[in-house]
Design a protein around this nucleic acid. Structure first.
Lengths: 142, 142
DNA sequence: GCTTGACTTGGAGCGCGCTCCAGCCGGTAC
DNA sequence: GTACCGGCTGGAGCGCGCTCCAAGTCAAGC
């Protein structure tokens, strides 16, 4: 399979794939007679996993570290495991942060809805108070 | 309160605060006799909220749009509400993505643990299989 | 009076992670 | 044959969001 197909299937772009190859994140694939990169299905799994790591915001240097270990073979399984576990912990932390942000947002949205119940009901009716930033300092209900 | 204190309390850095002021994300505060920025507690709430928006990865252009609406006053509450709701939806989507990534990671971690139960138990015992990327293609259990 | 330290400014620099480009080549379809 | 497409290379460029810097000012403490 050539780079275009490979890109489409892995979720990366051809440019990104070549970039990954340049920085050593993906091994240089064999070439066809015309000198074009030729990928097999097994490479696809690694590329997809890399794409996943990208989606989860793993810094490229960490992906690189992981890739290097992978290239070194089975002896590095323990190290790889450590990286994955560390990153999993980060993800969980991130989940908590996001949940917190959603809560803040909900409070603010709720506050605005009260200021302007217009939105999908009527046109407008009140207005003033000039809030924002003061949205947190409200009756002690949580 | 001067910029150092203000920064510490809001969660932003002095440089970031000045940067936000430059791009119009925060209003220029009054100055003391020496020409130094002088903030009040009310500004703090807005700065903290901005910090929150930053934590939740709201692009700076969106923060800017929100800030401009806020500056325009109460007539824009509806628009602001829309922005917040949109971003809330993004956060929820992101939560789902992360949950998915955690699942992928867990599968892989589990797989590695089986390859190498050594880690905190013994030294090693098996090894080979040379996986990675193939971690997804496993007995159909989810 | 002098030192210290927090502040001021405008502007340069940076790390990330791609992304795009020019200019070229080879294979395939009509 | 020729048009077109998709790929090749090396390197430049970019958008983001700060972050850092030099050189200067001011106020307070010793």
């Amino acid at each position: 399979m050539r780079i275009g197909t490979f890109a489409a299937r892995s979720g990366l772009s051809p440019d990104t794939i070549r970039y990954y190859e340049r920085i050593g994140l993906m091994p240089p694939p064999p070439r066809d007679t015309a000198g074009r990169r030729s990928y097999g299905a097994d490479e696809l799994a690694w590329a997809s996993f890399l794409c996943k790591l990208q989606v989860m915001d793993m810094p490229i240097r960490d992906r690189l570290a992981y890739g290097r270990l992978r290239a070194e073979g089975d002896a590095t399984v323990g190290d790889r495991l450590a990286i994955l576990e560390l990153h999993r912990a980060n993800l969980v932390k991130r989940q908590a942060e996001i949940a917190d942000c959603v809560a803040v947002l909900d409070a603010k949205i709720d506050h605005y809805r009260r200021l302007e119940p217009a939105r999908e009901t009527a046109t407008d009716e009140q207005g003033s108070t000039h809030d924002d930033g003061r949205g947190g300092r409200r009756p002690r209900r949580r």
